[in-house]
Amino acid sequence: SDFTIRIGDRTLHLKNVSEEILKILEELLRRGIDFEELRKIVEELIK
């Protein structure tokens, strides 16, 4: 499924993301992860 994360004025667009990855990202966001850290993790996950 497609997913968009907005943190402040920044946006991260994800396409064809599995439910498992979404759950991980949601947990990281709940813990207050930094946007740049989140972006790096996402890039690793979707390689």
Rank of each mutant, 00 (worst) to 15 (best):
S1R: 11
D2H: 00
E36R: 04
I46Q: 11
H13V: 13
F35L: 06
F35N: 04
I33E: 06
S1A: 10
R6Q: 14
I46E: 10
E26F: 09
G32Y: 09
I46K: 09
L28A: 07
I33H: 09
I46V: 15
L14D: 00
H13M: 05
K47S: 12
R10G: 08
N16H: 08
K23G: 12
E37G: 08
K47T: 15
R30A: 14
S1C: 04
L14S: 01
R6M: 08
K23P: 12
L25G: 01
R39T: 13
L22N: 03
K15L: 03
V17R: 00
L45Y: 10
E44M: 09
E20C: 03
E36D: 15
I33R: 04
G32H: 11
V42D: 01
E26C: 05
V17S: 02
D34Y: 06
D2Q: 00
R10M: 15
K47D: 10
D2N: 01
R10L: 13
L45T: 07
E43L: 10
L14P: 01
V42N: 01
K23Y: 07
I5S: 00
G32D: 11
I41P: 01
R10F: 15
R39S: 11
D34H: 06
R30N: 13
V17G: 02
E26M: 07
R30T: 15
I33Q: 06
L14K: 01
N16S: 07
R39G: 11
S1L: 15
K23L: 12
L22R: 11
I5K: 01
L38Q: 02
L25P: 00
E44W: 06
S1P: 10
R31T: 13
V17L: 05
R6C: 12
E19D: 12
K23Q: 11
E36W: 05
F35A: 05
H13Q: 10
V17Y: 01
S18F: 02
R30H: 15
D9I: 01
G8F: 02
F3D: 01
L28E: 09
K40T: 14
D2S: 01
R31E: 08
I46P: 08
D9M: 02
F3G: 03
K15C: 04
R31D: 12
L22V: 15
T11W: 02
E36P: 04
T11H: 15
L38P: 01
N16G: 12
L29R: 03
K40V: 12
I33D: 09
L14Y: 03
L12E: 01
R39K: 10
H13I: 12
N16Q: 05
D9F: 00
V42W: 04
T4S: 04
F3K: 07
E19I: 12
S1H: 14
K15W: 04
T4I: 15
E43S: 12
G32N: 14
L29P: 03
L29W: 04
K40F: 13
E44Y: 05
I33Y: 08
R10Y: 15
K47A: 14
V17E: 01
E26A: 08
I7N: 01
E26V: 05
I7L: 08
E43Y: 08
I24L: 10
E37I: 08
T4K: 04
R39I: 15
I24F: 13
E44F: 11
I21N: 13
I21P: 02
I33V: 09
V17M: 07
K47E: 07
